[in-house]
């Protein structure tokens, strides 16, 4: 599974998604094809805004997992590092560990969010 993680590093370490130059839509995660313009679209990678807002969330296995609406309208599902959040809480990205492949495997880093003070 190492190549599977490695392939997405750019898009997980930072919130890098796709922007369609034809229709102006933002997509996260990255897409190979614009769902609106399809083959006529022109997608390129773009770094998305650092901040967003909690649209909804759950607490599962002791962690807050939230749907975050980024400031450009795209959405990302990510962990929020906080004691509590609410719908509407403003958050910003942070770089954190998501897990590791046992004691000997690789460490999975990625983007999480924290409330904006």
């Amino acid at each position: 599974m190492v190549p599977l993680f490695w392939r997405k590093i750019k898009y997980r370490y930072d919130v890098v998604g796709s922007y369609c130059e034809k229709c102006g839509s933002y997509y996260y995660p990255k897409r190979e094809l614009c769902p609106k313009c399809r083959r006529k679209g022109k997608l390129r990678d773009e770094r998305f805004p650092d901040e967003g807002r909690v649209l909804s969330y759950t607490i599962v296995n002791g962690k807050i997992i939230a749907m975050i609406g980024l400031n450009n309208g795209a959405r990302t599902l990510a962990e929020v590092c906080a004691e509590k959040v609410e719908i509407g809480t403003r958050v910003k990205k942070v770089f954190r560990r998501y897990g590791e492949d046992g004691d000997e495997g690789i460490i999975y880093y990625g983007t999480k969010f924290v409330p904006v003070c």
Partner: peptide, 15 residues
């Protein structure tokens, strides 16, 4: 990857 399983996603919808 983000830590969501099937119940977690339905919970997000429910909330």
């Amino acid at each position: 990857f983000a830590g969501a399983n099937l119940p977690a996603l339905y919970a997000i919808i429910a909330r």
